Simulated scan of single mutants.
Amino acid sequence: MSGILGRLRKIWRTRTVERPDEPQPVVPRPKKRAHNLFEAAAAYVSACAEDDQDQIDEAAAWVSPEALSFGVNELTCRAVIALARERDESPRTVARTLLGLPTA
């Protein structure tokens, strides 16, 4: 999970750091259907799991870093809840197990 957070921080920094000496090019984007934050989060997380950097970059560009972070968080919560129900364990136990932490 820290890999995902590290990538989000990198994306955030590259999009928010002011560069006064570099002109910002105006690049027209092709008209495409807008992606919502949940589509972006699903694509981003699955690309991270598959270590597909091109798809990671593409999904990260679909929405703002804040929206992507929210979507990844929501996906994480839903996944942990689903696994907890499947395993008949608490979400806390499942989350700690997934992260390789001892159960509390």
Rank of each mutant, 00 (worst) to 15 (best):
I56D: 00
A60P: 08
Y44Q: 00
V45N: 05
A47D: 01
D51R: 07
V45C: 12
T76E: 13
A47M: 01
A60V: 03
A60F: 04
D54W: 08
A59T: 06
S69G: 10
A47I: 02
G71F: 03
Q55R: 07
G71D: 01
T76L: 12
Q53D: 08
E66R: 15
D54T: 13
V63I: 11
W62N: 02
A49Q: 05
A67H: 14
D52C: 10
E58C: 05
F70K: 14
S69E: 05
N73R: 15
W62H: 06
N73W: 15
D57H: 03
E58Q: 14
E58L: 07
S69V: 02
S64E: 10
A67M: 15
A41D: 04
F70I: 14
S69D: 01
E66V: 12
C77W: 15
E50K: 09
V63S: 12
D52P: 09
T76W: 14
V63F: 05
S69Y: 01
S64N: 11
F70C: 11
L68E: 00
A40M: 12
A40T: 10
V72M: 08
S46F: 01
A61K: 06
N73Y: 14
V63C: 09
C48T: 05
S64W: 05
A49H: 03
A43D: 06
T76S: 11
S64Q: 06
Q53F: 06
A49C: 06
I56C: 00
E66N: 12
Q53E: 15
E58F: 06
V63R: 13
V72N: 07
A60M: 04
D57L: 07
E74A: 13
A42W: 03
V72Q: 05
S69M: 03
E66S: 15
T76C: 11
D57K: 02
N73Q: 13
D57A: 13
P65M: 09
A43K: 10
Y44C: 00
V63A: 10
E58P: 04
Q53C: 04
A41S: 07
V72I: 14
P65A: 09
D54L: 13
A49I: 03
C77F: 14
Q55E: 09
A59D: 08
V45L: 11
A59F: 12
D57Y: 03
Q53G: 05
A43N: 12
E58Y: 11
D54K: 11
A40G: 10
A42T: 02
A61W: 06
V45I: 11
T76R: 15
D51C: 13
A40L: 07
I56T: 00
G71S: 09
S69Q: 02
